[in-house]
Every structure is written in structure tokens, then in C-alpha cells.
Design a protein around this nucleic acid. Structure first.
Lengths: 264, 264
DNA sequence: CTTCGATATGCATGTTCATGCCGATTCATT
DNA sequence: AATGAATCGGCATGAACATGCATATCGAAG
């Protein structure tokens, strides 16, 4: 069936406005197009689902091509902190741990217990900057061209450097993990790097927020069973975890983010 | 003024202010955005929870890492910002600029004009983390073992990587510059790295606060005449500069910093 | 022409969210 | 120690929201 021309037209005009002004307000759009706010909200929902904008309370904001980590960081800090705590038991003094890029991994870096003598390697400047404060941590920085969209050193140079490491533990920043337990990423170079470092690691862990469970991104990183440990949130649905358990993953359940301490 | 900003936008603008000025005051923000101070405090609380700023009584401060370097930056932020501005004219679009470690160099990175398309290389995670947010800047990260005391990648691995660069401009973080214009550093590895990258650069610049003028540190970096440009403060004593001028250095005089007292 | 299915839209519902206000507490300054 | 401002926690309110359902529109098949 033919798509309704009017609604398509409206959505493209919303996008045009978004492009021009950087933001739109649902109530304004409803008035401008003489439709109900519900319709506008539906439009915004579709546009957001297809990645054309970011929905916020009251309207929508233009989707920046490269979502800076500063923005991603703002999303669910307490959930990420809780997830991070769940991974702490995997750290043992003396280990070489690779921390992949990702806002959850920054939270993980933050939650490394004070005084634990780890060697940490990372290609993510923000994580390195945070860990450089910790005198007890030996920090290995992986260099290369820093991808603006991802926020970490990627590409040939970074991979050549990373190829010299054999980490005891690699903490992947996951973009998606499907029902079978295969891990995938949105960005090609990022996926290549993740694959490389995961293969070189004795053990691979990750932590995912519930919304990433059961999703799959374009570029595969690990096949089912490739992940040794996975931290999930307290509210993760059981049926999504059932398939994972069969692959031999050790599941680490985070506490509900309400109670625990929030340290800076 | 009506509070017609979406909350997400308001938080972004607060972050922008924080980035630009280094601190914000809750009461000012409440007036600027026409919301109650409670709302501003809530915003600051969220931003602080996600690690974007440090809350203080009365407002918030830009989050500086607790590295020795960032600690030093806190000592005279206005002076360093003024010094940084003095070096801006050296930057031209398309250049490859190496930013050495140092608190003043972080201020310099911050003062690179918005929209200027530079390629910046650095071995300093804090600087890299700051520049990774700038889409127009191509960022090259030099990896290696991060020295805790210095806050940058140093040693063999870092030097081998840096040896592949031929920067148009190198901005050295100086530890001391004596009356003849020879530059020196406190740390051996740091001095080695500085020497290497300076020799590979077409042009070498530095910025020093007045207290470093006429001092000498244990490890030599550059002989007299090795420095092409030097930014000095407005209150730098003339007699200290007299000897420098003879070596052929181009002196860049910073404006006097505003006389505001850092109240927070 | 009628009927069907698909889509778009509006309305009613219960829920979630952002905000402002209030009282109690903490903090910096005297 | 005393004081006033800043802060925190809870609460109330209205706006924005998601969801389910009913209606309207339109093209295609009968």
C-alpha cells in the first residue's frame, strides 16, 4: 500500500526543522501542522527509532553525527555504577585488564577498588585520564588515531599496539548481545578492534544495560559462547537470560540501583 | 525570560558554561535560565553524578582530574588561560600540532578556537579526553606506559610512536627556562620525550608562568635558541626577558588576567 | 459498488516526568 | 558557637507521555 503522503511530508518537515534549529517542541509542531500532539509524538517516536533524532521530554533534539561520550555518559549513571560493581569480583591484584571504550566501562574503571594493584590497558582517553590519578594502577595507553564518534584510538596503529598485549581479562563495551549470546557493535573499526583484543584475552567479560539485551548490531564481535562473564541489571528479564545461560556464560547480577552507595 | 529550554538543553548549556568558564554559580544559572535554584541544583546533582563536574557549595566546578598536572592547573587558572590565548595565533588550520604534557598545555588545548581544523597529537590522556569531543580536530594519541607522576605516556614505546611524527608545531610544557633560553625538565623520561618530539618539530613553542622564568631543572631539553616562540605573562619582569630576546625567540605577551578573585 | 485490510489519526486512560515549594539539615563565615 | 545561605529530601502539581481503542480514509480485491 502507498504510504500516506501527508504523514511522510510532515515527518520530513519535522526533520527539516530539527536540522535548522537543532530542536523541536512537540506542542509547537502540533500547532504548526494542525494535528494532535499524539500524532506528533508518534512521528517523533518513529524518527527516533530510525535514528534521525533524539527524543527528550517535551520534544526532540537533533541527532549529532558523533554522539560524544559526554552525552552518552549522562544517560543512566546509577545503573551503570551498579553494573560496574557487579564486575568488581573479577579483578584480582596483578592482573592485566583491558578496558574497552564505553560509558559503562568508564564506570567500571571508577569502581576498581582503591588500592588494588592492577595493570590496566585502554585505548580510551577518558578512561586513561581517570585512571592516571591512581598511583597503584599501572596504566598502559594504546595510541592511534582517535575516532571522534567512538572516543577511542582505533584503526591499524591502535590494533598493532594492542596486538602486543595478552590480557588476563578484557572488559568489552558491548553495543548489542543477542539471545544466543553473540556480541556485536555499531561501528566497523570498533568491532575490528574489539574482536582483536577479545581474541588475545584469556577471559572476556562485559556489562550491558537491559535495553541492549536481545539486540544485534551490524558488526559481529564474538560468536555465542565467546563471552565468559556478563553483568546484567537487576531488572533484566529472565527469558532474555535463559538462552545466555546455556552458552556457559557466568551471569553477574547487579544490585538494583536504588540502594547502594553512590560515590564520585 | 520564560523557562523555554528543554531540561536536556539546559544541562548541555550548563556544561558548555562550565567548559568555558571553569565554574558556575547556582544562583546565576537559575536567573539565566529562568528556573528555580532547586532545578539548577538538580541539574548539577545529575551532572556531578555522571562525573561531568564537581559540586561545591554555591555551584559547581569543571571536573579536573586529580592528577598532579590538573592539580597544578587549579593554582592559577586565569593566568594559564591568558597564557594559552597568547599562543592561539600560532595555530593554523591543517597543521599537525603536538601538545606536550603540562597544566598550561591543557589550558592551551581548551583555547583552540572552535571550528579550527587541526590535527593534534598528544601523549597526555587528559588532553586527549578533552579534545576527543571536538569533531573538527583530528586527534592522534601516542600510547605507552603512562607515568603516574607526570600524567602522560613516556618511555620507549611512547618514543617509538612519537618518532613517526613530524609536527609543524610542538608546544612544550616547560618546567624551567633559564636566562639564556635553555629549557629543562624535572623528570628524566619526560625530558627524553620532550627532546625527541621537539627535535622532530618544524617549530617549537612554549608558555611559561612568570615563576618559571629564570629557573633551571635537572634535565636539559633544548639549548638556547632551540625555542621559536615563548608566551610569557603580562607581569613578566623585563630583565628576565632581555636575555631571551637575544636568542631569537619570538615573545608572545599574554594579557593581564582579570582581577577576579576565585571565590569558590 | 461493496467489502476488506491497512494506515493514520484522535480520544480516553493511567503513568511518568520536570518543576517548584516547604521544612529540616548542612555548610561557610563571623 | 552563632548566623544566614545553600542544600537535601519529600511532596504536590501540571504537563508530557504510552497505551488501547474507536474512527476515518484510501487503495485494492471481489
Amino acid at each position: 500500500m502507498q504510504p500516506d503522503l501527508l504523514s511522510r511530508e510532515r515527518q520530513s518537515q519535522i526533520l527539516a526543522r530539527l536540522e535548522a534549529e537543532g530542536r523541536v517542541i512537540a506542542a509547537d509542531l502540533a500547532r504548526a501542522f494542525a494535528v494532535s500532539e499524539d500524532t506528533v509524538r508518534r512521528d517523533l517516536r518513529e524518527l527516533a527509532a530510525s535514528g534521525h533524532c533524539t527524543r527528550v521530554y517535551g520534544g526532540a533534539l537533533r541527532r549529532e553525527a558523533a554522539t560524544p561520550m559526554a552525552t552518552r555518559l549522562r544517560e543512566a549513571p546509577e545503573r551503570k555504577a551498579a553494573l560496574a560493581e557487579a564486575l568488581v569480583p573479577l579483578f584480582r591484584p596483578g592482573m592485566l585488564v583491558f578496558l574497552d571504550v564505553g560509558s559503562t566501562n568508564l564506570a567500571i574503571a571508577r569502581s576498581i577498588p582503591k588500592g588494588m594493584a592492577l595493570t590496566v590497558a585502554t585505548h580510551t582517553p577518558v578512561i586513561a585520564a581517570m585512571l592516571a590519578e591512581r598511583a597503584e594502577i599501572t596504566l598502559i595507553l594504546i595510541g592511534g588515531r582517535v575516532s571522534t564518534g567512538i572516543g577511542a584510538a582505533l584503526g591499524g596503529a591502535a590494533e598493532r599496539e594492542a596486538a602486543r598485549l595478552a590480557p588476563d581479562l578484557c572488559v568489552l563495551g558491548a553495543c548489542g548481545i543477542d539471545a544466543m549470546g553473540s556480541v556485536s557493535a555499531q561501528d566497523y573499526d570498533d568491532a575490528c578492534f574489539k574482536r582483536l583484543i577479545a581474541e588475545r584475552s584469556a577471559s572476556v567479560a562485559s556489562a550491558v544495560t537491559t535495553d541492549k539485551l536481545g539486540t544485534r548490531a551490524p558488526f559481529a564481535i564474538l560468536p555465542p559462547g565467546g563471552l565468559d562473564h556478563l553483568a546484567v541489571e537487576a531488572d533484566a528479564p529472565r527469558d532474555a537470560l535463559a538462552g545466555l545461560a546455556e552458552t556457559g556464560i557466568t551471569l553477574l547480577h547487579a544490585d538494583a540501583p536504588g540502594e547502594k552507595h553512590a560515590k564520585i
